[in-house]
């Protein structure tokens, strides 16, 4: 136990150092922000366009829309909200809420639908 305690302490210290260093990291440049925004704009345009070609897309429509939605979501969270560059703890906190939400509500809607 004593050994593992020491290791823990060292790990904690290392983690702490790493994070403090992390804080010092520069956030991405304004150029990359604008780049991300452009991608988001294009995706939005594609989403809206898909609405007009709904019939041609057929069964592909819903998966395509959902994938574009997820990409947009991830881009904003990773870049604009800095989760890519920030501490892992933030990601873990947010993702647990997100996964929990998707999990319980998807299960609920399924029980209404199929079961």
């Amino acid at each position: 136990m004593s050994v593992s305690d020491e290791t823990l302490a060292r790990e904690a210290q290392a983690e702490h150092d790493a994070q403090t260093e992390h804080e010092g990291h520069d956030h991405p440049s304004d150029r990359s922000y604008v780049g991300i925004a452009l991608i988001l704009a294009v995706l939005t345009a594609l989403e809206v366009a898909s609405f007009y070609v709904e019939d041609q897309l057929g069964a592909l429509l819903v998966p395509a829309l959902v994938i574009m939605m997820i990409v947009k979501f991830v881009l904003v969270v990773a870049w604009f909200m800095h989760l890519r560059f920030d501490s892992n703890l933030f990601t873990r906190v947010f993702v647990s809420g997100l996964v929990l939400a998707v999990g319980v509500y998807a299960a609920t809607l399924t029980t209404f639908r199929f079961w």
């Binding site: 989403e47 809206v48 898909s50 609405f51 709904e54 429509l61 819903v62 829309l65 959902v66 574009m68 939605m69 947009k72 979501f73 904003v76 969270v77 604009f80």
Partner: peptide
């Protein structure tokens, strides 16, 4: 904003 990204797709776009 990301909540609206979801609402826009799930509520408005998906028939």
């Amino acid at each position: 904003d990301i909540i609206w990204i979801i609402i826009f797709t799930l509520v408005y776009l998906i028939p």
